[in-house]
């Protein structure tokens, strides 16, 4: 069973069982594959190099749209223009955080620098955002309903399994953020 992250003399540390690491690695790979931009033939290589993507569209997948949201609430044209300039690099920075977290999953004992912890918290957050969309968490009541699923013996279908995975990543992220807060206070 995983141990909550904690902040102590050795910095931010945590412990994950091999099965839990395997689970997280799978989730990370899923989110990375959602975020990887499709390479289009005929794309201007220079534009791609500087991070521009003139062919970009608002994602049709709700989970991907939650990861890459519109920057303006009631201005689709303005949001699309902003997307052309920034979405590629946003995808890349998210993938970078997810890869960094995945690389730390090669042993049971986790020991994170403040920067690694920051990347981990971002990666866990993106995983949770995707799981939440798949679980149709739209409001606090939905979140409470999912949160009530705590018993792995209840995992009888995909939905309940996803809910348990979501709760596990929530618990892990919460303990990580508490540790990061403690580290931040120590530094002040």
């Amino acid at each position: 069973m995983a141990k909550a992250f904690k902040y102590g003399l050795k910095g931010i540390t945590g412990y994950l069982e091999p099965a839990e690491r395997e689970l997280l690695r799978g989730l990370i790979d899923d989110v990375i594959s959602m975020l990887e931009p499709e390479e289009q033939a005929g794309q201007d290589p220079l534009a791609a190099l500087v991070g521009l993507d003139m062919d970009v569209r608002q994602p049709s997948d709700r989970a991907l749209l939650r990861l890459l949201p519109n920057v303006m609430k009631d201005d689709d044209a303005g949001s699309l223009e902003f997307r052309q300039l920034t979405e590629r690099s946003l995808r890349e920075s998210k993938i970078g955080a997810l890869r960094a977290a995945s690389m730390g999953l090669d042993r049971n004992e986790l020991s994170l620098t403040p920067e690694e912890a920051r990347l981990w918290s971002m990666a866990l957050n993106d995983i949770r955002l995707v799981l939440a969309e798949r679980l149709d968490i739209r409001d606090e009541a939905d979140a409470d309903h999912v949160h009530a699923m705590q018993d792995w013996s209840q995992a009888e279908d995909v939905e309940s399994y996803l809910a348990l995975v979501y709760n596990f990543t929530t618990w892990l992220q919460e303990s990580l953020v508490q540790s990061m807060m403690a580290a931040l206070e120590r530094k002040d």
Binding site: A132, I137, R138, E140, D142, Q173, V177, L184
Partner: peptide
Amino acid sequence: DPVNLMSYVSF
């Protein structure tokens, strides 16, 4: 949103 942790947002 119902997903982001309050502690994380504050952090």
